[in-house]
Write a protein that binds this DNA or RNA. Structure first.
Lengths: 242, 242
DNA sequence: CAAATATAATAGTAATACTATCATAATTGC
DNA sequence: GCAATTATGATAGTATTACTATTATATTTG
């Protein structure tokens, strides 16, 4: 069924035009009980996105979440074994969704250059409209990933969580974009580094633009961040013509 | 006195050859009582670096620190009003120290290109030898900044802390390196973005190399990270010769 | 050597992540 | 349609945390 969709005649770029029936896959080891399997699970995921986005992951507590959905801490812990795992679930969901966006944005495009341009847009553009994918607010989730995702791997648990597969969606996405880089320049030595740098760099630059503007040269109005990273990528992988 | 040092005939690059008498300035609003003013303050800073490096900032507690230096929580809180402020102090110290390293690495160098190369090395190279600057273990502090510093600004307190000047040493450093970029190409539009991306990107790539290698193309043995970022920078700012 | 200051000792608060237990509600299998 | 299973709620509890308050004892300073 997914394959069928990929062959639709006109594939649109923007995420809000994606069909909402595609199942987003998240590693089952990130939850104790699939939140998609019940109303409560759905409320947990949906409301945790609202809450983390509103108050930040540090101030976010399972108790606050439970109160917000008229449930109890114990019930939440039946779905996610920890606050960390819940965050990992959300981030993993995000990258799985980004992978679909990438597929839709690049299918039937013959030019590798255009494909890479579109991938960079997907990565560097902040979602500005309040759109939902089922019960998930994509703008808020996007915002969470931008500000909280480094915390998911910059800790002492990273190896343990990596073994669980917590970062495999992220890695898959990076590798898919890296593959486009390799199409354009098979000799370029650092495609994965380049793409992971663009991803994390774009997240940070968005944060800096808003809070520490002296670290950037980007205005909030124009898409300087996209321009900047696009420039970096294409200059880096350009094959020298002599 | 500082000025004098800058005019020493032969300026060496490596940090362990810096004189240890240069006072590193840290914004006074980051502490309640200057830790340099007493034995206890020195022990707090010195041991917190050891501890945070060993167990990570999340697991680091003021109680553990107090026990490690045979003191009490209350005493530590007389120097730093919070765990966060202590981290901000350490990071601020780091950037102040990096500024000195930058000055020493670039003084009396006429070529802007060489200056920028040296700056990039300073930024991207991890400190591998256990060297001390007075009571501060530079290797451990370097490691802390690489893994914990994003947490210092990726939170809801960032604006408040920014007003205190918590990030001014970092900004100063970024701007000093950006100035070299501008020397090389006055028309380049994103010097600050470029340098802050290189700094944060290099930190992350070091972490990825160790924990999530699929996100990189760097081996731990070679200086691929330096090569990669050096390549990015010089290609990005190259003036097109047609 | 008195006065000021720094530190230690001790206790306490409110909040946190997470666990345990048991009762009740909702769903399912037959 | 009803028993058995499962999901949730209610409630309580643990150990730990960041941080504060208070008082006593060192240590330094004028």
């Amino acid at each position: 069924m997914i394959v069928l969709l990929l062959y639709l005649p006109k594939i649109k770029l923007l995420m809000f035009e994606l069909p909402t029936t595609i199942p987003i896959q998240v590693n089952a080891k990130l939850y104790l009980k699939d939140p998609n399997s019940s109303d409560l699970g759905i409320k947990i995921v949906s409301k945790s996105i609202d809450l983390i986005n509103a108050i930040g992951f540090e101030d976010f507590t399972i108790r606050k979440l439970a109160q917000a959905i008229n449930s109890t801490e114990a019930s939440v812990y039946r779905y996610f074994e920890s606050k960390q795992k819940l965050l990992l679930y959300l981030i993993s969901w995000y990258w799985s969704w980004m992978e679909y966006r990438l597929v839709f944005a690049t299918t039937n495009i013959s030019s590798s250059k255009v494909k890479l341009e579109r991938a960079i847009s997907l990565i560097t553009d902040k979602i500005e409209h309040d759109e939902k994918y089922n019960y998930i607010n994509l703008k808020k989730l996007n915002s969470i990933v931008f500000t909280e995702s480094t915390k998911s791997f910059l800790n002492k648990e990273v190896d343990k969580e990596n073994k669980l597969g917590a970062f495999s969606e992220y890695k898959k996405f990076v590798e898919k974009v890296s593959d486009i880089v390799i199409e354009l320049n098979p000799k370029y030595k650092f495609p994965n580094m380049l793409i992971s740098t663009v991803i994390e760099g774009a997240h940070l630059q968005h944060h800096f633009t808003e809070h520490l503007p002296r670290l950037t040269n980007a205005s909030t109005k124009e898409d300087h961040i996209q321009l900047f990273f696009s420039d970096i990528v294409f200059k880096s992988i350009a094959t020298t013509k002599k």
